[in-house]
């Protein structure tokens, strides 16, 4: 018999207007949900279905009648009769500026879709002057709060800095970080609960960091790779992808993605194997899979190499004796 499974109470539907079109969504939905239902495209960067919305990137802002300021569509819940505009002058201006602010301070070269948005909104990141020279390795990690580091007048401050390479599984390219908080959330309360990552510092000096900016191998990191899984800009990247990109052999158009189940423990996590030239080049998990919600552990994310290694098996091969 199938019985006694609590059924979620039926949610009332709420009618709102988006760009003068009536849209009906279940109570508790966000404006973004409503826009998606109405096929209205809203750009997002810091939003992810599986994470608590932090609404910090502000690229998804919309105008809500009666609201003094624009509101983030990713987190604002719909209310009956709400009148939303997603394409007004105010909205377009703020989105353009947000994109300009990001593009003028962060390397967005591996952020999907953003080039189109920059063009759509006529953003011009170059009008803030030439970029200041990149920071030295570790320099930004030491910036204390409340005392900014002004660059020479005429130049624009950026977060450019060398890539952090401290382990064989993934790299950190903070010059590509838009501070969307996703990695911190995925490492923390929203998924892994390891809390190896934090936002440290304040203002423009705020950055993703471990405690005292120690290297990942000295930190609490357990290499679940969920930071990579959530990162929208490639600031966190598989070493395999990083190396292939450096070698010019990364080709997403030649990759096939196959969903299967992890070969390790009995939890049954779905893996998406990204395969190029009959080699796994990275592993993700579907966000909508109810077991993983897109999250994996070190074995599922990185433990697949054994199917590609040719030659005798030695368990000690992987021992890091450092």
């Amino acid at each position: 018999m199938t019985a006694l499974i609590p059924i979620e109470p039926l949610r009332k539907s709420v009618e709102i207007s988006v760009d003068s079109r009536p849209v009906s969504v279940p109570e508790g939905s966000t404006i973004l949900d409503a826009c998606r239902r109405a096929d209205i495209e809203v750009p997002t960067l810091c939003y992810l279905d599986t994470l608590h919305p932090v609404n910090v990137c502000r690229v998804c802002v919309v105008e809500v009648e009666g609201s003094r300021v624009l509101v983030p569509s990713c987190s604002r819940k719909v209310e009956p009769g709400m009148v939303v505009k997603t394409d007004s002058e105010r909205v377009r201006h703020s989105r353009k500026m947000v994109l300009e602010f990001l593009a003028s301070s962060v390397d967005l070269s591996t952020t999907p879709e953003v080039a189109e948005w920059l063009a759509d909104y006529a953003a011009d990141p170059e009008r803030y002057g030439p970029p200041a020279p990149p920071s030295a390795a570790g320099e930004r990690d030491s910036h204390g709060p409340g005392h900014h580091h002004a660059v020479e007048p005429g130049f624009r401050a950026t977060v450019a800095q060398p890539v952090k390479l401290d382990n064989d599984l993934y790299i950190r390219d903070y010059g590509k970080c838009i501070l969307c908080y996703k990695c911190v959330e995925a490492c923390g309360k929203d998924a892994q609960n390891t809390f190896a990552l934090t936002v440290a510092g304040r203002g423009f000096d705020a950055r993703i960091s471990t405690e005292f900016a120690v290297l990942l191998p000295d930190s609490a990191c357990v290499y679940c790779g969920n930071c990579i899984g959530e990162c929208p800009t490639g600031a966190w990247m598989f070493k395999t992808e990083f190396d292939r990109r450096a070698a010019g052999t990364w080709d997403e158009s030649a990759q096939e993605v196959t969903t299967t189940i992890c070969p390790y423990c009995g939890v049954g996590c779905s893996l998406e194997l990204h395969v190029q030239d009959n080699e796994i080049v990275k592993v993700t998990s579907p966000l909508d899979h109810s077991i993983t919600s897109g999250h994996l552990c070190i074995k599922g994310r990185f433990g697949w190499k054994f199917v590609q290694n040719r030659g005798p098996v030695r368990q000690s091969e992987g021992v890091d004796r450092g």
Binding site: Y223, Y264, I298, G303, V307, E317, G318, R321
Partner: peptide, 16 residues
């Protein structure tokens, strides 16, 4: 993992 024949195939920064 178990006798290490699978997990030994990748380099883990955690492994000692």
């Amino acid at each position: 993992y178990n006798t290490g024949v699978q997990s030994g195939g990748y380099t883990s920064p955690l492994r000692r």
